[in-house]
Amino acid sequence: MVNARDVVLGRVREALAAAPPRPVEIPRDYRRERGLSDQRRLDMVVDRLTEYGAGVYRCRAEETATTVAAALSDARRIVVPPGLDRSWLAEFSGSVEVDSGEFSVRALDEVDGVLTSSAVTCAETGTVFLDASSDQGRRALTLVPDLHVCVVELSSVVAGIPEAVAELEPTRPITMISGPSATSDIELDRVEGVHGPRTLRVVVRVDR
């Protein structure tokens, strides 16, 4: 018996043979690398994050702990991924649990928030990319808790989407986040806060 795979592939081959397409040249003359200054990228990413309803905190490296504590001020109990730099939490007064994969989903639903790092950020769209590295954790970690505080290094902020995509390792689980969860399903009015974290706060560290 012929299997579905061979049938479908056969049909596709025949379809193309019936009207052979011309070879296609892909024009790549769109903007792929924009050398924007640190200041421009910083201004842009702050503007875009703010516009989409994320809280934005700017700090220098040595101010990380105090800034993170401020961003987490309304959380008592948080969870962090195993590879997170624990010095960022030096000023946080609440309790911190480390997720090593043993947290059940319901347990994650009980914590107040999550603190993570990030892989790369696109300034033009205000998009933070997470790639499930050990300082960002598995995907459920940044999804179930209602508050996500995310640290972004300015050096990892790129101008546009092409530059950001180029930084990614495709086979890792990737989550792109642009502001808190939202819906426009009712009369196309944007409402923030549906299933993902209803509060997103981004701490931008302007140096290392």
């Binding site: 994969g101 205000g126 499930a132 598995r138 995907r139 689980p173 986040i177 642009s178």
Partner: peptide, 20 residues
């Protein structure tokens, strides 16, 4: 949606141990 970027985009490749 007329947005610079939609709030979430997920990408996955096969299965990842301990995640998803």
């Amino acid at each position: 949606t007329g947005e610079r970027m939609n709030p979430y985009t997920s990408m996955w490749t096969g299965v990842t141990a301990g995640d998803g």
